[in-house]
Simulated scan of single mutants.
Amino acid sequence: MLNRVIQQFELNVLSINEVEDSHSSTVYKCHLLNGENVFLKMPYTKLKCQRELEAYEIIKDRVSIPKMLDYWSGDEECPGAFLLSELKGQPLTNKALPTVAFQVGILHASMHQIQPPTTLQLTGIQNEFPNWSNFVERQFYSFAEDVKEVLDESLYKQSIEKFENMKLQLPPSDGPSFIHMDFRPANIIVAGDKVTGMIDFESVRFGSTEIDFTKLYRDFLSFDISLYQSYQEGYNTIRPLIDFEVVLPFYQFTDAFNSIGWCKRRGIEKNASFLEKNFSILKKMLL
């Protein structure tokens, strides 16, 4: 399949490396004979392909993202493929300076400023905002079928009860906004002390911003109060940040629960450390 995609894009490749930490698509970094680096991305499904394709159209020139150099719509065997330019730098880490966290806040808020287009017909990216509560519930109970096979009965019942109780306490939703749904350090690229952009749009929606802070908090903001404060300051320069401490416990809980279901779907042994991490979060929040 990789060779077919390379031929499709007529690339003269010197070397290829598969990119780790890509969960909804297969991604390769290609070093070309002319010295350039490009990325080949093959989402797992046609829907993820269509979302990514529409996302590039919606957010190009509005936030910093790779350039889409070419696109192949695929065939019966391949859902489709993207040829993308390289964003210079490395994925964000929690060792970053507060000045970088400030820029992450600006990037995130700039994305959240984007509202559903009125002139573009979308078939992949859904506007979930009008029925946001139903969307969150639908996701939760979809993964619940898988979680049920992993958790013991008592813990599973506790989880369902907690979800229903916490859901009732949520404030009004903030949106509709373009939400990444996987806004985490691996998808934020940094070169030195400068944020160069973000990647991966196969899970995007229009919806409430409140869901989009959880993974960033889990993997970055929670490590240092100065990062947390600088991020908020950066975000607030573009748009008002919701009091996400009010909604964060609910989304931390649902993210941990859904992630356990995700691990069951994708293979428990292969994702053992991620499963354990989310199992620990879930138990802590249930106690």
Rank of each mutant, 00 (worst) to 15 (best):
M166F: 07
Q103S: 09
Q158R: 09
I125G: 01
N258D: 06
I242P: 05
G267Y: 01
G74L: 06
M42A: 05
G74C: 02
V100N: 05
R218N: 14
L122D: 04
Y228Q: 11
N165C: 00
D75P: 04
L53A: 14
I260C: 06
F279C: 08
T123M: 10
K46G: 01
Y217G: 00
I225R: 15
Y228M: 14
G207W: 11
S110G: 10
I160W: 00
F213L: 12
E20N: 15
S259L: 05
T99P: 00
L33C: 13
E36M: 13
L87F: 11
H23V: 13
L286M: 03
F250Y: 09
T119I: 14
Y141S: 05
E18I: 07
F250N: 04
S259F: 06
V190Q: 08
S110W: 02
G35S: 11
G105N: 08
D174P: 00
Y235N: 06
V247Q: 07
V13P: 05
I242Q: 14
H180A: 06
L2E: 04
A109Y: 07
H108V: 12
S226R: 15
D21S: 14
R266P: 00
R205T: 10
I6A: 04
L286R: 00
D243S: 15
D255L: 02
F39G: 08
D174C: 12
M68Y: 01
I211T: 14
F220E: 07
L2D: 02
I225H: 09
A186N: 13
G74E: 06
T26G: 00
S73A: 12
V19L: 12
V5A: 11
E210G: 08
L14C: 04
L47D: 04
I199C: 07
S15G: 02
P117K: 06
A55T: 08
G124F: 06
R266W: 03
Y56P: 09
I58W: 02
E18W: 00
S133T: 13
Q229W: 01
I65H: 04
F183Q: 04
V27W: 03
F143Y: 15
E18G: 02
T119A: 14
H108N: 10
Q169F: 08
L241G: 07
G89L: 10
A256D: 07
D75W: 10
N127G: 06
S259P: 00
M198Q: 09
E153H: 02
L120F: 13
P249F: 04
T214G: 08
I6Y: 01
S208Y: 09
P185W: 02
H180V: 12
S203V: 12
E36I: 03
